[in-house]
Design a protein around this nucleic acid. Structure first.
Length: 193
DNA sequence: CCGCCGATCTTT
DNA sequence: AAGATCGGCGGG
């Protein structure tokens, strides 16, 4: 099993701009497998035109406005699931999109869930690849990472975030594309695109 | 390695 | 009609 200290509510309950870089090198644990977070993006609320929460709470985005430390999972392009860690205080929208992880446990299971992957770096190097690899889907929307009741959590195994993480604009956006709110582990083989 | 394009369906 | 994506295909 993956060893490490589970993150507490207070770790999540702050601005996504602060939370995002601190999630780098933490370990996302799912049922039977785990991956080290190497790439994330921050999404805010009414002040962020790139965010699903920009125009207020809807049935889809209500989790983003709820308690920090839960998972916001949405359906993308009619066929993919993407997972975000909810930040901020209840009532204020904020989340961090998990864009890439390095598989560190349950590699066989991960490979079986990612049959199109030709090389190791194809397994979890994208927001929809990692959800498929770790078995995350719409049934996990709203899952609490702090209680880990649905088998999903994030732990600190003692690996600190990078002293100086890589940083860039967010990927795949037209609105809010100027904001440098993507952070990544420089030199990782498992980054997206 | 890079760019283009189709798949597929929810949300606006 | 566009979208917080992916994978296959063709070209260099």
């Amino acid at each position: 099993m993956t060893r490490g200290r589970r993150l507490r509510r207070a770790f999540y309950a702050r601005s996504p701009l602060e939370l995002a870089p601190d999630l780098l090198n933490k370990v996302l644990v799912a049922d039977g497998c785990a991956g080290r977070v190497v790439e994330v993006e921050a999404y805010c609320g009414s002040d962020d035109p790139g965010s699903h929460a920009y125009r207020g709470s809807t049935p889809r985005t209500e989790v983003m406005f709820g308690q920090a430390g839960h998972l916001y999972v949405y359906f993308s392009y009619g066929m993919h699931w993407c997972a975000n860690v909810v930040a901020e205080q209840p009532g204020t929208a904020g989340a961090v999109l998990l864009r890439a992880v390095t598989p560190i446990q349950g590699i066989e299971l991960i490979r079986s869930r990612r049959p199109t992957a030709k090389r190791p770096r194809d397994l979890c190097s994208g927001p929809a690849k990692l959800t498929q690899a770790l078995g995350i889907d719409g049934s996990h929307d709203g899952a609490d990472l702090v209680s880990a009741e649905q088998g999903l959590t994030i732990v600190d195994d003692g690996t600190p975030p990078p002293h100086r993480p890589g940083r860039s604009p967010r990927i795949g956006l037209t609105q809010g594309a100027d904001r440098p709110w993507r952070w990544f582990v420089e030199g990782s083989d498992d980054l997206s695109r």
